[in-house]
Design a protein around this nucleic acid. Structure first.
Lengths: 195, 195
DNA sequence: ACAAAAAGTGACCGATCGTGCTCTTTTGGC
DNA sequence: GCCAAAAGAGCACGATCGGTCACTTTTTGT
């Protein structure tokens, strides 16, 4: 069964890649199968349906995100340095990840925000979970900790800058996007720091 | 020929509605035709291809955006009040517009950012144009005007908050999204005001 | 080495995709 | 009211969609 696991992993990779590029709705089983060197029916030995395949691919993408963005930051002590590490890792992720397709999570968030189903449910669950993680890190910035609504506002702004960076970088092709995002986030931390 | 124009307008409306809901790639001529009460082939009397139809629909969506967000603000004198009006109008647009589908422009930006073609070209052109408009308004905030890079940063943050609001509102279903966006933008204007 | 289980193929299904064609109905200018 | 032109219907096309099934090949545990 080890051979099968490797194939399964390649299928999931390719699914995530194509979903980031063209959207989940536009992923074709034929294209995925061809890209991994399988026949279309071969896919069904690993997943019972296209939707099930996409669900696992999205789940795996979140795991990869956590490992890429969170795990390196976890080594640092809670506080500003850790938050900056998270932020930089997040920007890296949306630039580097999946080669040309951009961040699958952001793309899926917009594509699925009005299409009920298991994909949307998973997305909502994990994105909320990530937001709680960010809130916890924000609270570690100050002692005594910030009130909840101020933390929520800070998290809102942090995520906004990541989204803005993605938009500026990918759609506008603005080379200074990262500088702007970094400056905005730094200023946010400054404000929180000596409030 | 007036009858034809009315039908054409309904086709474009429906195309934009479905594109906002499911993405341009997932719009089906059959669905559009059915929704406007036409046969599929009837669509081709108004547009020579699906892509041409989508292109006009997107163009019209930008015109609508300008009228909805910019035109009401234009009545106010340049400065903070006008910028606040723009920002509020922008948030309204992304909440109200197209009923359930969210803002087509944001959705298309993410869907098409890596898919070359006329749709992407149009998108890029109009989004850049809108950004220049915002920059001009930001410059009117101070006398002497802000340096260009500070203006660019302010525009970056403004758009980021709109994107963040959209994400929080639609994906996270966070009822306080608007409050957070408004607070963040107000603070940005404060910083710019007495810099 | 051998059998069982897993992995993968190819043909095929009904549905739907975008699009072209011919034909009929409707509309607007005179 | 007539007539050309515009608007639209209906059908069929080749391609592709997700998915099934019977069959063959490969891998794995023993």
């Amino acid at each position: 069964m080890r051979k099968g696991d490797a194939t399964r992993a390649r299928i999931l990779d390719e699914t995530a890649r194509q979903a980031a590029l063209k959207g989940f709705g536009a992923v074709s089983l034929n294209d995925v199968a061809e890209a991994v060197g399988l026949s279309k029916s071969g896919l069904f030995k690993h997943f019972e349906s296209k939707e099930a395949m996409e669900l696992v691919a999205l789940e795996q993408e979140f795991d990869r995100f956590v490992e890429f963005v969170w795990t390196p930051a976890e080594a640092l002590p809670p506080g500003r340095a850790r938050l900056e590490k998270i932020f930089e890792g997040w920007l890296d992720w949306s630039e580097v990840e999946r080669a040309a397709g951009g961040c699958l999570i952001m793309a899926a968030s917009i594509e699925l925000d009005d299409q009920p189903g298991p994909l949307r449910d998973l997305l909502q669950k994990r994105v909320r979970q990530w937001r709680r993680t960010l809130a916890r890190e924000m609270q570690a910035l100050r002692d005594p900790p910030l009130p909840d609504d101020e933390v929520a506002m800070a998290v809102f702004q942090m995520k906004s800058y990541v989204l803005g960076h993605n938009d500026a970088r990918r759609m506008l092709e603005d080379a200074s996007a990262r500088k702007a995002a970094r400056a905005a986030f730094g200023a946010l931390l400054d404000r929180l720091g000596h409030g």
